[in-house]
Simulated assay, not measured.
Amino acid sequence: MANRSYLYSLSNRPTSYADRPETISGVSEWNYDVPFMYRLLMSGDPQLCASLISDGLDDDEADEKVKLYAISSNFEPGFARVKRFIDIVRFLATQAPSPATPSTAPAAAPKALSLIDRIKSRLSSAAASKAPPAVAAPAATTPATGSTQLPGWLDETLAFLEAHRDTHLLLETVELDTMSESEEGPLRACVEQELARCQQAGAALDALPQDIAAAAQLLREAGATKQAAPLDAFFGLRFDDDCDSTRSRATEYPLGLQWSEVLYFGLFNRAEFEAAQRGDAAAA
């Protein structure tokens, strides 16, 4: 089983494993990474909170459980940044490449023909006059963009997030963190580092110029060449159909445009959690 990051929309900031929201929905999950779009969504006042995936590690004693952390943020500020980011990426995806500069070299002077050359030329012209007319080949066209699918993915992203709006978001990285750590202090430090990356993603978006053409140009440059902070948060991103192609190694830093309500960990809301607790108590 792959270790994943998980993203949810929900109605509270959990203060404990049992502090369940009234409403909660899956938003996305990602194998072995936290995509940029998760971080941008989570950039609206991210704070440490309790994990809702687990109240401890598998081998913990019942009275000595490791406290596990997640990140909670306000939905609307992060979503506003995502919408602006999508506008800029869409602008990038619809830009035609610069046309080639026509050659301005002077034409070569015609070469003097010998008698034999003139005879050959007449024979060639006579043969050509008897041949059927040639069909002109269609002019070569250059697509406006190499991103045939990206605009559709951006549309799907906006539609999905609009349909799953809530007051808060929850980012769970416990599966990724436990790949390298098993104690409470280091596990908390992993989550704090991820929280800082969410803040950096928001700061990077805010640092782009208001003019969309200028913002798109700077975003393209920052994706390809590492810039000074906070723009370094964009480094490694691609803005074409390979934006999430981590399996093929076309990119190592996914944009993160895959969305689903159905996640490996489907978390209980308050009513479901309390019903499950009552069922466990009755079974005991």
Results as ranks from 00 to 15, higher is better:
residue 5 S to V: 03
residue 5 S to K: 02
residue 9 S to E: 00
residue 9 S to T: 02
residue 11 S to H: 10
residue 11 S to Y: 04
residue 15 T to K: 15
residue 16 S to V: 07
residue 20 R to Q: 10
residue 21 P to K: 02
residue 23 T to C: 08
residue 23 T to V: 13
residue 24 I to S: 00
residue 26 G to P: 05
residue 26 G to E: 08
residue 27 V to Y: 00
residue 27 V to T: 04
residue 28 S to G: 14
residue 29 E to T: 09
residue 30 W to M: 09
residue 32 Y to C: 05
residue 32 Y to N: 10
residue 34 V to I: 15
residue 35 P to E: 00
residue 35 P to L: 01
residue 36 F to E: 00
residue 40 L to H: 00
residue 40 L to C: 05
residue 41 L to A: 02
residue 41 L to D: 00
residue 42 M to G: 01
residue 45 D to L: 11
residue 48 L to I: 11
residue 52 L to G: 00
residue 52 L to C: 04
residue 57 L to E: 05
residue 58 D to T: 11
residue 58 D to N: 10
residue 58 D to F: 09
residue 60 D to H: 08
residue 60 D to Q: 08
residue 71 I to C: 04
residue 71 I to Y: 02
residue 72 S to W: 03
residue 74 N to D: 13
residue 78 G to K: 00
residue 86 I to D: 00
residue 88 I to P: 01
residue 92 L to E: 02
residue 93 A to C: 15
residue 94 T to L: 12
residue 96 A to T: 11
residue 97 P to S: 12
residue 97 P to K: 11
residue 103 S to V: 11
residue 104 T to D: 14
residue 104 T to W: 08
residue 105 A to T: 13
residue 106 P to F: 09
residue 108 A to G: 05
residue 110 P to L: 11
residue 113 L to E: 13
residue 116 I to Q: 11
residue 117 D to V: 05
residue 123 L to A: 11
residue 124 S to Y: 06
residue 126 A to K: 14
residue 127 A to P: 04
residue 127 A to R: 14
residue 127 A to Q: 14
residue 132 P to H: 08
residue 135 V to R: 09
residue 138 P to N: 09
residue 139 A to Y: 00
residue 145 T to M: 11
residue 145 T to H: 14
residue 147 S to M: 10
residue 156 E to N: 12
residue 158 L to N: 02
residue 159 A to L: 07
residue 160 F to H: 06
residue 161 L to V: 04
residue 169 L to R: 01
residue 169 L to C: 05
residue 172 E to C: 09
residue 176 L to W: 01
residue 182 S to F: 13
residue 183 E to K: 13
residue 185 G to Y: 09
residue 185 G to C: 08
residue 188 R to I: 08
residue 190 C to M: 15
residue 193 Q to R: 15
residue 193 Q to T: 15
residue 194 E to S: 04
residue 195 L to K: 05
residue 199 Q to E: 15
residue 200 Q to S: 15
residue 203 A to E: 14
residue 203 A to G: 05
residue 203 A to L: 14
residue 207 A to M: 03
residue 208 L to H: 01
residue 210 Q to L: 14
residue 210 Q to N: 15
residue 213 A to T: 06
residue 216 A to M: 04
residue 217 Q to S: 12
residue 219 L to I: 03
residue 221 E to F: 07
residue 221 E to R: 13
residue 222 A to H: 02
residue 223 G to K: 01
residue 227 Q to I: 04
residue 227 Q to K: 06
residue 231 L to I: 03
residue 232 D to R: 01
residue 234 F to T: 00
residue 238 R to L: 14
residue 242 D to W: 02
residue 244 D to G: 01
residue 246 T to D: 03
residue 250 A to R: 08
residue 251 T to G: 04
residue 252 E to R: 06
residue 253 Y to E: 06
residue 254 P to T: 00
residue 254 P to M: 02
residue 255 L to V: 07
residue 256 G to T: 05
residue 257 L to Q: 03
residue 259 W to T: 10
residue 260 S to H: 09
residue 260 S to I: 09
residue 262 V to P: 03
residue 264 Y to N: 11
residue 266 G to I: 06
residue 267 L to F: 03
residue 273 F to H: 14
residue 274 E to N: 12
residue 275 A to D: 12
residue 277 Q to T: 12
residue 277 Q to G: 07
residue 281 A to K: 14
residue 283 A to N: 10
residue 284 A to W: 07
